[in-house]
Amino acid sequence: MSGLLVLELFLAIASAAVIVMLAVALYGSNRPAPQSEVSAKGYAIRRYWFWTILIVAAIGFAISIPRFPYGSAQTIGKHYTIVAQQYSFAAPPTIPADRPVVFDVTSRDVNHGFAIYDPDGKLVAQVQAMPDYINHLPFTFHTRGHYTVRCLEYCGIAHAAMQGGFDVR
């Protein structure tokens, strides 16, 4: 799910939460009522409220499962080896478009991140680059052009300058 979409969803939920919380606190605040009266109503609402939250969370969870990004050494697609090290990436210069590929990502020294930004600068996928391990990231590119790779795990003094890239043709 794209970051900007998540931002919109988040801002919608957050503003709703702020408005509801303020309304609960302020509505009727000039007409105090005994706690027992407020609780009786509150407990009735609370039951529905719990179930609503639970169901929404369960739906979100179910939707997310088929979208897990995890690949393995056996994942179908052409495999490309990516080796990260302080402070550069060894990556192939070109990757084919519209075909499943798998990045086999590792590191020569410390933990790094391998994050792919599309030609518009949008973050489209990432995986950690770890010493002693290979992480398999499956991906299919549909947009052609030059992609930038950035390190997304703090790795030392030049972390922010650690970049690479490839062309998708």
Binding site: A17, V18, M21, S64, Q126, L152
Partner: peptide, 30 residues
């Protein structure tokens, strides 16, 4: 205290979104 509860809900919402794996793919370490 009351504002803290609002902050807890808002920050928690952002956390739960990011704790959803396909979303985390785009937000992890941003």
């Amino acid at each position: 205290l009351y504002a803290g509860m609002i902050g807890w809900v808002v920050g928690g919402t952002a956390a739960v979104l990011d704790a959803t794996i396909p979303i985390n793919l785009d937000l992890h370490n941003t």
